[in-house]
Write a protein that binds this DNA or RNA. Structure first.
Length: 600
RNA sequence: UGCCUGAUGGUGUAAUGGUAGCACAGGCGACUUUGACUCGCCUAGUCAUGGUUCGAAUCCAUGUCGGGCAGCCA
C-alpha cells in the first residue's frame, strides 16, 4: 500500500470500514463521525493497539470527526489507575503530528447530561478537543457513566427486557447450555417488573453478597449465539473502584457498558477487533431495546495486527516482565508503545507500519521485516549521521605526527536537499570497527586487509602496512599509512577504492555504553507455544563499550541518529546521564554483505 | 455434530462482473566517500469442484481448511 501516513493531506487508503463510513457520510446518517479508542486500564498499550488507534483516529481525521479516548473500566477488580496516565501518554505520543486535533477528551469530572430529544429523555456527553487547553480535561471513563448505565438498566427492567437472576455462577453456566446444545430458562426469568425493580435496588443497596444475584437481559436461552442466552448485564462486586470509590457494589459488564458508553458519547462507528463479532447482536439488542432517540452507533470488526517475533498477549507480556527476561514494561525489546519509543522508533514509523498493514477480517501475521522497513523508511531521511565504533581496533597512521589534528567535514544529513556538515579530526591514532579488518579476507571482501587499501570516511585513503598481535594472536593494532592527497580538496580526492570504513579519533572520542538489541524470540510465532519463554533469544541484548565521535556528547533523548554503516541509535532516555551516555540501537542498517557467503 | 467469520505470490494487501496490481521479503545488476539510500530488471498468487455469464478472484452451490464463541474478563 503506497500511503504516506505522515502526510496529513494524503488521500485515505480505502478499506471495507472506510467504505461504510464514506457511505454514511454521504447519506448524512450521523451529525458527525465519532470513533473511540477504548482500552481497559489494566496494562500497557502495545503495537497491536497501535493499529486500533490508527484506524479509529485515522477515520476521524479523514472525516473531520473526533476519536474519544475512553478508559473501559467496568471491572474494579482488574484495573488500576497507574495505567491510565501511561495510556494517555502513549496515545498522545503516537498521534502527535498526525491526529492530535482529533483526540476527544472531556472536562474533568463531566458526566453525561440529561436532555430531551424528540420529546424523549436522553443523556449525552460531548467531547472537547484534547488540545483545546483552556480548561482541565481528562479522557472519558466508562465508570463516569455508572449513574446513567444504572438508569438504563432500570429502564430495561421496566420494559420487561431484563430480570434479576438468583442462579449461582455455576448454575448460570449449567443453564446456558453449550454451542451445540440450547440452554434452559432460569427459574427466575419470569419475575414481575416490580419484583425485579425491588431486587435490583437491593442489589445496588448492598444487601447481597458478591455473585449472589445478577441482572440479566431477557433474550433467548436457545439462541445459537451464546451471547444472546440471557447475558449478564450487572454483577455484584463489593470492591472499591479507582474512579468511583465505594459508591457502587454493582458493576456493569462489558456488553451492557460498551454500547451505551458509545451512545452516550455520540459515537457513530465503534471499531473493534474480530473477537467481538459474536457480541455485535447483543450490542444492537441493548441499544434497540431502550428505544433511544439519537442515531445509534454500530460496531464493525477488523483483524488484529500480529507481527512475527513479537507477542501481544497481555498475559505473556506480564510473563516476560515478571520472569526477568526483560527489565520492565519499557524494555526496548518489548512491543509495548513505551518500549518502542525508548528503543528509538518514531511514532510516524509505528503509524506507517500499522496503517500499511491494512484493514481486513483476514487473520494474518505480518512479517517483522515490514515493521523494520517502516522504521528505516522514517529514520533514513531524518536521522543525523554520526561516526561511532562499536567494537574498536586501534589503527595508527604512522605518517601523521602525534598531536596533529586534520580537519575533516562530515555530512550530517545526506538525504537533505541542503546538507550540513560538522568537523571531525583525523589524528595519528584512530579506532576502526574490528569487523572492518580481516587478516585472511573472505572472497569479495573490500574492507581493510594486510597490504590493502580502504578509505576512512570523510578523511583519506589508507594502506595497511603492518598487523600487530598480542601473545594470543589477537590483533591489537594496525599500522597504516595515510595518503593525504586523497583528502577533500586534495589532488587525488577522486581516487576510488572499493571500501569505505567509519572511524573515530582515539584521542578525541568519548566512551559510551551501547545496547545492541535483536529480536526477542528465536521463532516467528512465539505466542503459538504456551511455553514461549523457551523461545527467548539469548542474544537479544548485547552491551558494548563503544567509542563515539565527540559531537555525540551533546545528544539529547528523542534525537535520532544513524551511526554510519551501523544502524539507527538513540540516547536511552532512562539510563543515560550527561557523564555516562547510553545509546540504544533501534535497528541495524540493512546489510547485504552479512548475507553474502563471505560475510559473517 | 450449533452459530459467526474468513481464504489472492513466501508475507501482507488491492482489483466491488472486464488486462490479477502494489508493498515487504528473495534474486540479479547499476550507482556509491555508508556493502546504506536510490534506480533498473527478475522470481512468485486467485483453497477445491461444479454452475451462471460473451466474460468470474468477484455472483450461486457444495466441499476443504483456518479463526472466534459455552467468564459474574474486556
Amino acid at each position: 500500500m503506497t500511503v504516506e501516513p505522515t502526510d496529513p493531506t494524503a488521500p485515505a487508503p480505502s478499506d471495507f470500514i472506510r467504505d461504510i463510513v464514506a457511505q454514511h457520510v454521504a447519506e448524512k446518517r450521523y451529525p458527525k463521525i465519532v470513533t473511540r479508542f477504548p482500552p481497559e486500564p489494566n496494562g500497557y498499550l502495545h503495537i497491536g493497539h497501535a493499529k486500533a488507534i490508527c484506524i479509529n483516529f485515522g477515520i476521524a481525521r479523514e472525516n473531520g470527526g473526533t476519536c474519544n479516548l475512553r478508559m473501559d473500566d467496568t471491572n474494579p477488580a482488574k484495573e488500576e489507575i497507574e495505567y491510565v496516565d501511561a495510556i494517555i501518554d502513549d496515545v498522545k505520543w503516537l498521534i502527535s503530528g498526525w491526529a492530535e486535533h482529533q483526540l476527544g477528551f472531556k472536562r474533568k469530572g463531566a458526566t453525561p447530561a440529561a436532555q430531551i430529544v424528540d420529546g424523549k429523555p436522553d443523556y449525552y456527553l460531548a467531547s472537547v478537543p484534547a488540545d483545546a487547553g483552556q480548561t482541565e480535561l481528562e479522557p472519558f471513563f466508562a465508570s463516569h457513566y455508572f449513574d446513567q448505565l444504572h438508569d438504563y438498566a432500570v429502564e430495561l427492567i421496566r420494559r420487561g427486557r431484563a430480570y434479576v437472576c438468583d442462579l449461582s455462577p455455576k448454575d448460570t453456566d449449567d443453564y446456558r447450555g453449550a454451542p451445540d446444545r440450547p440452554g434452559k430458562d432460569s427459574p427466575f426469568r419470569q419475575r414481575s417488573v416490580a419484583e425485579n425493580l425491588d431486587l435490583f435496588a437491593r442489589m445496588r443497596a448492598g444487601e447481597f453478597p458478591d455473585a449472589a444475584r445478577s441482572l440479566r437481559a431477557r433474550i433467548d436461552m436457545a439462541s445459537p449465539n451464546m451471547w444472546l442466552r440471557d447475558p449478564l448485564l450487572y454483577r455484584i462486586r463489593h470492591t472499591a473502584h479507582h474512579q468511583t470509590g465505594d459508591k457502587w457494589c454493582i458493576y456493569p459488564l462489558y456488553d451492557s457498558a460498551h454500547c451505551l458508553s458509545d451512545y452516550l458519547e455520540g459515537v457513530s462507528h465503534s471499531l473493534c477487533s474480530l473477537e467481538f463479532t459474536d457480541h455485535r447482536p447483543l450490542y444492537d439488542w441493548i441499544l434497540e431495546a431502550l428505544g433511544l432517540p439519537r442515531p445509534l452507533p454500530h460496531q464493525y470488526e477488523f483483524s488484529k495486527l500480529r507481527p512475527t517475533y513479537m507477542i501481544g498477549s497481555k498475559r505473556k507480556l506480564i510473563g516476560l516482565v515478571n520472569s526477568g527476561v526483560v527489565t520492565g514494561w519499557d524494555d526496548p525489546r518489548l512491543p509495548t508503545i513505551r518500549a518502542l519509543r525508548r528503543r528509538g522508533v518514531p511514532a510516524s514509523a509505528v503509524r506507517r507500519f500499522a496503517i500499511g498493514a491494512g484493514v481486513t477480517k483476514f487473520i494474518s501475521t505480518t512479517d517483522i521485516a515490514v515493521f523494520e522497513h517502516a522504521v528505516r523508511e522514517e529514520l533514513n531521511p531524518i536521522a543525523q549521521r554520526r561516526l561511532a565504533v562499536l567494537k574498536p581496533v586501534k589503527l595508527v597512521l604512522t605518517n601523521i605526527p602525534a598531536g596533529e589534528k586534520l580537519e575533516c567535514a562530515a555530512t550530517n544529513d545526506p538525504q537533505s536537499e541542503t546538507p550540513t556538515t560538522r568537523t571531525v579530526h583525523l589524528t595519528r591514532e584512530v579506532y576502526i570497527e574490528s569487523d572492518d579488518f580481516a587478516e585472511v579476507p573472505p572472497p569479495k571482501y573490500f574492507r581493510l586487509k594486510p597490504g590493502g587499501e580502504v578509505r576512512l570516511k570523510y578523511a583519506c585513503i589508507i594502506t595497511c602496512d603492518e598487523v600487530i598481535k598480542d601473545a594470543t594472536g589477537a590483533v591489537v593494532e594496525l599500522r597504516c599509512t595515510a595518503d593525504l592527497t586523497t583528502r577533500a580538496g586534495g589532488p587525488n580526492v577522486d581516487r576510488k577504492v572499493k571500501g569505505t570504513v567509519h572511524w573515530v579519533s582515539a584521542t578525541e572520542c568519548i566512551e559510551a555504553k551501547v545496547r545492541l538489541y535483536d529480536r526477542l524470540f528465536t521463532v516467528p510465532e512465539p505466542g503459538l507455544d504456551d511455553d514461549f519463554l523457551k523461545n527467548v533469544n539469548p542474544h537479544s541484548l548485547e552491551v558494548v563499550t563503544a567509542r563515539l565521535e565527540p559531537a555525540l556528547k551533546g545528544a539529547a533523548p528523542a534525537q535520532y541518529f544513524q551511526f554510519e554503516r551501523l544502524g539507527y541509535f538513540v540516547l536511552d532516555a532512562r539510563d543515560a546521564t550527561p557523564a555516562k551516555p547510553v545509546f540504544n540501537r533501534t535497528l541495524p542498517l540493512k546489510d547485504t554483505w552479512a548475507k553474502a557467503p563471505g560475510g559473517k
